[in-house]
């Protein structure tokens, strides 16, 4: 598996897209910091980008890579290699290279700006960490979609739909539910609904750092316990990790049954 990971990684590192992605983040980081000159504001803008754009890019990139390397995958499948390690290797290659572009692309300008001397380093590291996790989650989901759909157009469609659902539609339905059932105690529901969407979960994790003042305005006891203590942070983090494992597990299960 490590070998496949290595080659997928090399392959991706050489592809134009990795550079586009890297340069995009580099540019973004530069613009945010040097045009704005305001680290806190940059971190907030960055958060929006990370929880929206990172999943989108990971999804599209994951699907694209899977379809484009189909023949290569077949070549590998005919080699004496374990099936699951082929897919896991490719998956880790994609997710790893995307994460690297993210970390370097954003990390460099922030490092140049003198982040390491500032107090924003913790928030920033959290953002990058969450960006990495989201990359892994959505690349994994994308691989799952691609492996289940022979038809590329369909696969792409589903992938974009998945992103749209997680990033926008889910929250819309969520909001609607909250408003329709506002007479009922909803805090447990809200927390559960949040857990089922990795984007929301990541958002909450970041909110716990950036907007804790507002979140503590909540009156619900469940919320208070969850948000006001370290427990919330630990649980959200743990569930997010679970979210990264879930697509991997499902991918290797799907890979076992798949015909090529």
């Amino acid at each position: 598996m490590l070998k496949i990971l290595k080659y997928s990684f090399y392959d991706l590192m050489r592809s134009r897209w990795s550079y586009v992605y890297f340069l995009f983040y580099l540019l973004l980081g530069m613009v945010l910091l040097f045009l704005n000159n305001d680290l806190s504001k940059a971190v907030i803008t960055l958060m929006n980008i990370i929880i929206i754009l990172v999943p989108l890019i990971a999804t599209i990139f994951g699907v694209m890579y899977f379809y484009n390397s189909r023949e290569f995958t077949e070549l590998l499948l005919a080699q004496p290699l374990k099936r699951s390690s082929i897919f896991l290797g490719q998956y880790l290659g994609v997710a790893g290279s995307l994460t690297m572009s993210l970390v370097l692309g954003l990390g460099l300008p922030f490092a140049l700006y003198g982040l390491f001397q500032s107090g924003a380093i913790l928030n920033f590291s959290l953002l990058i960490l969450i960006g990495g996790l989201l990359t892994f989650i959505f690349a994994g989901l994308a691989f799952n979609i691609a492996i289940s759909n022979e038809n590329r157009i369909k696969g792409f469609g589903y992938a974009v739909l998945l992103w749209l659902f997680m990033a926008v539609i889910y929250d819309g339905l969520f909001l609607l539910t909250l408003i329709v059932f506002e007479e009922y105690p909803l805090d447990t529901f809200s927390l559960i609904a949040t857990v089922f969407n990795p984007i929301d979960l990541s958002r909450i994790l970041i909110l716990l750092k950036l907007d804790i003042s507002a979140l503590l305005g909540y009156t619900g006891a469940v919320f208070k316990d969850f948000l006001g203590t370290r427990l919330g942070f630990i649980i959200s983090g743990a569930v997010l990790l679970l979210w990264t494992l879930l697509p991997v597990w499902s991918l290797s299960a799907k890979a076992k049954r798949k015909d090529f």
């Binding site: 080659y7 090399y10 392959d11 050489r14 592809s15 390397s69 189909r70 023949e71 290569f72 077949e74 070549l75 005919a78 080699q79 004496p80 290699l81 374990k82 099936r83 076992k256």
Partner: peptide
């Protein structure tokens, strides 16, 4: 079934020769 080691004994030429482009 479910094995992979035996492929060490097989050389396979796939029908469509399409490889990762940038290698």
């Amino acid at each position: 079934k479910g094995q992979w080691k035996y492929r060490e004994e097989i050389n396979y030429l796939p029908q469509i020769a399409n490889f990762p482009g940038n290698i």
